[in-house]
């Protein structure tokens, strides 16, 4: 259900500020909506996101109910070294969705 996509430049110069774009399919159910029968739809939100660059968190976010469904999030980081970027979204039940990308820094 929760398919994530990330866009990271495959290569960058050392010290360059790069833009990272992420997208994840998720209903972001707030727990405030009711179904057609008038029953409350239980809350199930992505509550947090982190981007780690070779293990070091470089961007973290805590989401509340006002973040839209299927959130698109973009941000920046400094290309410090070649390696791996990990992207982790965690929901209310502590279920994590992970995605990764690699970058070559010259």
């Amino acid at each position: 259900m929760a398919a994530a996509q990330v866009r990271v430049p495959s290569s960058a110069k050392k010290g360059e500020v790069i833009e990272i774009k992420t997208r994840i399919a998720h209903d972001m159910e707030t727990g405030m909506r009711k179904d057609s029968a008038g029953k409350t739809i239980p809350r199930l939100m992505l509550k947090s996101f982190v981007c780690k660059y070779n293990g070091t968190p470089v961007f973290e976010a805590d989401f509340d109910t006002s973040v839209s469904a299927n959130p698109i999030l973009s941000f920046f980081t400094v290309a410090t070294e070649s390696g791996k970027l990990e992207f982790i979204w965690t929901d209310d039940n502590n279920v994590a969705v992970k995605e990764e990308a690699s970058i070559t820094v010259a």
Binding site: V17, L73, S74, T77
Partner: peptide, 11 residues
Amino acid sequence: RAGKAEFAIRI
């Protein structure tokens, strides 16, 4: 490490 204090999201 962000290099630039900027982000975009949909709310």
